[in-house]
Amino acid sequence: MIKVEGLIKRFGGQAVLDGIDLAIEQGEIVVIIGPSGTGKSTLLRCLNFLERPDAGRLTIGDLNVDVTRATRADILTARRRTAFVFQNYALFANKTALQNIAEGLIVVNRWPKERAHARAREILERIGLADKADAYPASLSGGQQQRVGIGRAMAAQAEVILFDEPTSSLDPEWVEEVLGLMKRLAAERQTMLVVTHEMSFARDVADRVIFMEGGRIVEQGPPDQLFRAPQDPRTRDFLRQVLATQVALDVPD
């Protein structure tokens, strides 16, 4: 289980996260939506300590720390228990698809190379890229790169995979294959925390949708409830704007 209490992050005095409380059960699929610049990505990056939060408590499994007092070892533990999928894929440019997936197993988990490569091949099979094992990122399409990025996160066997707008950099033609893979992971009850603007994904896949604005959680609930009967006017405004350009879902006034 992952739990965040009173998380605060400031950039230059401005609170980007203004007291976030959040708990995610094992196997739960949580999608965060909201306008740009409201701290959604920052929240994910704080869970992974890519940003150092300014206050709050973080619980991941048996790790329970005051984020301001987290030691180097705590940070490494938090990172090993939270896998990250980046908007821009961020595959290791000097490593093949296979090596990208095996890298963490070899370096962080200290698996023997053969075992790590065998596991990476299994994952490549699952993400449908078995034939691209020896391809370098530069020769892969955006969709393929992001699938390898997800494969790398799968290999970590983390408590949760954090997806930071995984389809936002993709050409439209590659979006479906990446969302398809995420749906398969969701069906296997891989715990996921997803920041996305893909409302149909949120509606179809999420157990719970969170609407964030101004560094706070404004409203949350099952997708049916949040999309059909949003309580807060800010949620309603946001959904109306977004859904006008996406799939037609009826939002009451």
């Binding site: 300590f49 980046f86 890298e103």
Partner: peptide
């Protein structure tokens, strides 16, 4: 960031 995110020192 990618390397740090998977727990590398």
């Amino acid at each position: 960031e990618a390397a740090l995110s998977i727990g590398m020192t």
